[in-house]
Amino acid sequence: MILHKSKNLTFFKPRILKNSGASFFDMGISAGFPSPADDFKEQRLSLDNELVKNKEATFFARVSGQSMIGAGLDDDDLLVIDRSLEPTHNKIAVCFLDGEFTVKRLKVENGTIWLQPENPSYNPIKITEDNNFVIWGIVTNVIKKV
């Protein structure tokens, strides 16, 4: 269900389903040489349980743009955002700035907040008293398509 769409992010509220989950083979998958898979065990894995720690305060948002590519957040990635987490220096946050949502790294220096992009083509944004600014939530995970 889409909750809000801005030019940089589209927000979704997760729908937690009981008894949901996909098959999970708890054996580790080699990124080197293949290994025999004789002794694996199958269980159920719910991404809700893995990615959503506080279901009432968790939202998803789809990224639009390239300002955070250095942090591994690419255009069309799906962010998991927890509004219950404390915003601190160096966390990646979803912020509401002057009427638009944006995702940036928080930099706090001498009481001043900067929104730091992770792409050299974009400039840091210094937050002042003149800005309409709210730290909306902290990014906890990113889901990518391959």
Rank of each mutant, 00 (worst) to 15 (best):
I2E: 15
I2G: 06
L3W: 01
L3A: 00
L3E: 15
L3M: 12
H4Q: 09
H4R: 07
F11V: 01
F12Q: 05
K13C: 03
P14C: 00
I16D: 02
I16S: 00
K18V: 04
K18H: 13
K18D: 10
K18L: 12
S23L: 14
F25S: 08
D26G: 02
M27Y: 13
G28K: 04
G28E: 12
I29K: 11
A31D: 05
G32I: 03
G32D: 09
F33I: 07
F33L: 13
S35D: 11
P36T: 09
A37D: 08
D38G: 06
D38Y: 04
D39A: 08
D39H: 14
F40P: 06
Q43L: 11
R44K: 13
R44P: 05
S46K: 08
S46M: 06
L47S: 12
D48F: 03
E50C: 11
E50V: 15
L51T: 00
K53S: 10
K53Q: 11
K55T: 05
A57V: 02
T58P: 11
T58D: 11
T58E: 10
F59R: 09
F60D: 11
V63Q: 09
V63C: 13
S64Q: 13
G65M: 01
G65Q: 09
Q66G: 01
Q66W: 08
Q66H: 10
Q66E: 14
S67K: 01
M68N: 15
M68L: 09
I69K: 14
A71M: 08
G72A: 10
G72E: 12
G72H: 05
D74H: 15
D74Q: 14
D75Q: 05
D75L: 03
D76W: 07
D77E: 05
V80H: 02
I81D: 10
I81M: 13
D82M: 05
S84N: 14
L85F: 10
E86A: 07
E86T: 14
E86C: 04
H89Q: 09
N90K: 09
K91A: 09
K91R: 12
K91C: 07
I92D: 01
A93Q: 06
C95V: 13
C95P: 02
L97P: 02
D98I: 00
G99K: 06
G99W: 01
G99R: 03
E100N: 05
F101A: 00
F101Y: 08
T102C: 08
V103W: 02
K104Q: 06
K104G: 07
R105Y: 03
L106H: 04
K107H: 06
G111N: 00
T112C: 05
T112P: 01
I113C: 08
L115E: 04
Q116M: 14
Q116H: 04
P117A: 02
P117S: 02
E118H: 07
E118T: 03
N119K: 03
N119G: 03
P120C: 07
S121Q: 10
Y122G: 10
Y122E: 12
N123D: 15
N123L: 15
P124C: 01
P124K: 11
K126I: 00
K126E: 15
I127H: 03
D130M: 11
N132M: 10
F133V: 01
V134H: 12
V139M: 00
V139C: 01
V139T: 00
T140M: 04
N141Y: 12
V142W: 03
I143Q: 06
V146Y: 13
V146M: 14
